[in-house]
């Protein structure tokens, strides 16, 4: 991998605050606001699990990636619409989702207005009376600064550690 240049301290703090704000917005179920104000229209939002392979096996031609999420803006919009429909009984009573974001690294991106952001996440999701689920994954994000000076999510690759989905599904903001 080519060397990436870390950003200045003020930008690091700015990015960190934006990521924190994003998770708070999602926790508060402000889906539409999140999509409209924090997400670029050409967004690629993916979550990938990896099939277990032997290290030395380079002959097998099958795909290794197992996508859980592979969304564009329109797909995210449909997911938000599902929540807005007033008919989504699986989140009624509401789920509670809390993100913990750590190991944050922020680098300069391909263009002067883009940042490459690595982080580790642990997310705890509670639903119904007894279901508490914990998910552990890494995120490689690209955020882009718009003409208005605001940062928006342009790409997110979620690298999921668990091979099987132990917490029922990945249908929560990752």
């Amino acid at each position: 991998m080519e060397e990436l240049n870390p950003v200045a301290h003020e930008i690091y703090i700015e990015v960190q605050q934006v990521l924190f704000k994003e998770t708070r917005m999602l926790r508060e179920e402000r889906w539409r606001e999140w999509l409209e104000t924090m997400v670029e229209k050409d967004i690629v939002y993916r979550a990938i699990v990896s099939q277990l392979r032997f290290r030395k096996d380079n002959r097998y031609t099958g795909e290794k990636d197992v996508p859980s999420l592979d969304e564009n803006w329109a797909g995210l919009d449909r997911r938000v619409a599902q929540m807005e429909s007033g008919m989504q009984w699986t989140t009624d009573p509401a789920e509670r989702v809390r993100h913990f974001i750590t190991n944050l690294e922020v680098f300069e991106g391909q263009t002067p207005n883009e940042y490459v952001i690595y982080s580790n996440c642990q997310t705890v999701r509670n639903r119904r009376v007894y279901e508490e689920m914990t998910y552990c994954y890494g995120r490689n994000d690209i955020w882009r600064r718009g003409a208005d000076g605001k940062l928006r999510l342009a790409r997110r690759d979620v690298d999921v550690d668990e091979r099987f989905v132990s917490g029922k599904n990945h249908n929560f903001p990752m």
Binding site: D70, Q82, W89, N169
Partner: peptide
């Protein structure tokens, strides 16, 4: 087709999560 399957009945699928409950 694959993207649509993931969106509906994949492990983060909108309908998949309805059913499992």
């Amino acid at each position: 087709v694959r993207r649509s399957m993931l969106r509906t009945f994949g492990t983060a699928g909108m309908l998949e999560s309805d059913d499992s409950d």
